[in-house]
Amino acid sequence: MKILVTVKRVMDYNVKPKVKPDGSGVVTDGVNMIVNPFDEIAVEESLKLKEKNGGEVVVLSIGTKDTTTQIRAALAMGADRGILVLADGSVDPDAAARLIKAVYEQEKPDLVVLGKQAIDDDSSQAGQLLAEYLGLPQATFASKVDVAGKTVTVTREVDGGLETISFDMPGVVTADLRLNTPRYASLPGIMKAKKKEVKEFTPAALGVDIAPKVKVLKLEEPKARQAGQKVPDVATLVGKLRNEAKAL
């Protein structure tokens, strides 16, 4: 089976994000970038399916040339080849879904696997939009994926229990946190990744207009918490809670 899996370049979750002074975005200069952790899980699942059923895993990402690093990270884990759609600036989930659709139509995979959301904007929309645009079945927030013949069975964690659904390929799956534990890229894997093919396309070449439908007006940091105060006795505390904090 042929699997198309997407990876997004996001800020390292260990980094405390800082908003740019003009509020147009967050500072990314000198900040470590990683593969979105949910996408790493998607890559791992794709590799497992390939190991079981044979076939090919193609990694797709959208971003600047630097995003090649994240594609190579997935190739180092064992994916076969990469596709980078070159795009500067922010690409909203709708544009991303339409770009993935264009690549889907070229590649004709049996399955598209995405992370359920990216840890930067937390939109959780691309997978659902993609399935809609392609007119394909979708199984989101997968915590277990089984493939038998043409049929994909997906277990989803829902409030109060598990839900099991199935569809016939082709279709779209998005990966939840507990689906698997991604493998470490092996060091020989990293070295081999350098030699694997990464094709580049522009959105124009794919015939997709990526002008954002959602405009970010301004980002602001949360207000800094005020320092605590020490009070001499309970009476003062109650007074402050009542009059200043208006909590009583």
């Binding site: 690093t69 190579r72 990270a73 470490y184 890229a185 092996s186 060091l187 990293i190 990744a193």
Partner: peptide
């Protein structure tokens, strides 16, 4: 190189 940095990152994560 980018590859050396990736290797370093992999071992550091391990």
């Amino acid at each position: 190189t980018a590859e050396q940095r990736a290797l370093f990152g992999a071992v550091a994560a391990f």
